[in-house]
C-alpha cells in the first residue's frame, strides 16, 4: 500500500471514529449487538469477519471441495 493510500485510509477511519463517537455522545439508539455500542466495533467486526471468511474459504473449503472442471465427466460410469 502506498503512503498516500495509507494516509487516506487513516483519514477515513478517523472520520468514521468521529462519527461513531458523535452517535455515541448524542445518545442515539444503538441497534442490536454489542459491537454497535463499542466505538469502531463495526470496523473491527468487518475486518475480523472478512479475514475469517477469506481464510476459511481458501484454506479449509477449497482444499476440501475443489475438483477439476471435468470432475463430473464419467463420474457415474459403471
Amino acid at each position: 500500500m502506498s503512503r498516500r493510500a495509507a494516509a487516506a485510509l487513516g483519514l477515513v477511519v478517523v472520520v468514521l471514529a468521529g462519527l461513531d463517537g458523535l452517535a455515541f455522545l448524542s445518545g442515539a439508539e444503538h441497534h442490536g449487538g454489542f459491537w454497535n455500542s463499542v466505538p469502531l466495533g463495526d470496523l473491527a467486526l468487518g475486518a475480523l469477519g472478512a479475514g475469517l471468511l477469506a481464510w476459511f474459504a481458501r484454506r479449509v473449503l477449497k482444499p476440501l471441495l475443489s475438483r477439476p472442471e471435468s470432475y463430473y465427466d464419467g463420474a457415474g460410469s459403471p
Partner: peptide, 23 residues
C-alpha cells in the same frame, strides 16, 4: 438513515475493502 446505521455500514464496508486489498 440514522447516524448509527450509516456509520455502522460504512465501517463494515471499509474494513472489508481493506482486507480484500491485503488478501
Amino acid at each position: 438513515y440514522t447516524l448509527d446505521h450509516v456509520v455502522s455500514s460504512a465501517q463494515l464496508l471499509l474494513a472489508t475493502g481493506f482486507v480484500f486489498y491485503l488478501a
